[in-house]
């Protein structure tokens, strides 16, 4: 019982701090305000500490800890921007970014359609699909494998986004050029991972398949693709972020007047930094959702993998 009391006080202080941010617009240079800010930070740290130290609490409320950390960052950001009167061009407050998200929603939605729904999805599917199929073909020829693998490793050191201006020249200003950049960027990570994954079976497993009289296709479906799945999913996750980056950077090189990269570069030039931050927020959410979706699919497909099995209680 006593322990819960420890929790109530900091939570009260956190509430007080939030109240101060959202309902009072005064810049707070006075001592009480500084005290409240210090108390806020101290309280969040205390709550995090209490939860982390207590296994029972952590099992139940573990997710609160990173959330509190994020809240603290946002709070300090908001308070610092208001308190020190940081100009909007330099760094807008989180609330200003939130406002921009709401006010500019139609514009941001159009950008999202152009960049994500057209360029990213088309490029991502094409790039990963082509790499997967070519990996399956190359896998049958050890000669080609030995030729392609070192090359693929070299390619990973190359800043591939640099091909964006060339693709814009070849495929025009609209989304196909962005999709082309994404295809090239996502191709090699997928190719390398799939090839490495397909080689992940050991001799015993292959011999077993052979003793079952399994032919190539059956071995592929029943043994080698499942073994390769974790590596393939790793590449898919990495590529989700790469695809977004590729589309946004390619839009810096020329685009119709819509798209996330276009929005970022023009609004930066017009000093509407809050819209830029709003676009970045959208991009972050898209990236995280894509990552999360792929992770969910991965759990469904590779439920047998040790990293997803539940620990015995």
């Amino acid at each position: 019982m006593n322990k819960q009391l420890y929790l109530y006080l900091p939570i009260f202080v956190i509430g007080l701090g939030l109240y101060q941010v959202f309902l009072r617009n005064e810049p707070f240079t006075q001592l009480p305000a500084v005290g409240l800010i210090a108390a806020f930070i101290f309280s969040t740290v205390t709550v995090m500490n209490i939860i982390v130290r207590n296994p029972r609490l952590e099992a139940r409320y573990g997710i609160i800890v990173p959330a509190l950390f994020g809240l603290t960052i946002l709070y300090v950001w908001e308070v610092a921007v208001r308190g020190f009167g940081v100009p909007k061009v330099l760094l807008p407050a989180p609330s200003a970014i939130g406002l921009a998200l709401v006010v500019q929603a139609p514009v941001l939605w159009a950008d999202f359609q152009q960049t994500v729904l057209k360029s990213v999805i088309a490029g991502y599917l094409l790039g990963n699909g082509a790499a997967f199929i070519i990996a399956l073909l190359v896998d049958r020829s050890p000669f080609l494998q030995r030729g392609l693998l070192p090359l693929g490793n070299l390619v990973s050191a190359i800043p591939i986004v640099g091909i964006a201006p060339i693709m814009v020249m070849w495929f025009g200003f609209d989304w196909p050029s962005k999709a082309a950049v994404i295809v090239v960027m996502t191709f090699f990570p997928m190719l390398i991972s799939t090839l490495a994954g397909l080689q992940g079976t050991d001799r015993m497993q292959r011999d077993l398949m052979r003793s079952y009289g399994a032919h190539y296709g059956q071995t592929l479906l029943a043994l080698r693709l499942p073994v390769a799945a974790p590596m393939i999913f790793n590449a898919l996750k990495l590529n989700a972020t790469l695809a977004l980056i590729g589309a946004i950077v390619a839009e810096f090189f020329g685009t119709p007047i819509v798209g996330m990269g276009f929005r970022i570069s023009t609004e930066v030039a017009r000093m509407n930094v809050d819209v830029v931050w709003a676009t970045i927020a959208v991009a972050s959410v898209v990236g995280s959702v894509a990552y999360g979706t792929i992770t969910l699919i991965e759990r469904r497909v590779t439920f047998w993998h040790p990293s997803f099995r539940k620990a015995p209680r």
Partner: peptide
């Protein structure tokens, strides 16, 4: 505490197209 609070954000930040921030940092 730092691990529990910071690590999820470090991992989440990997899913963010950070490059998009580049022009803004320059400005």
């Amino acid at each position: 505490t730092l691990e529990k609070s910071l690590m999820p954000w470090v991992i989440a930040s990997q899913t963010v197209p950070i490059l998009a921030i580049a022009p803004m940092i320059v400005v």
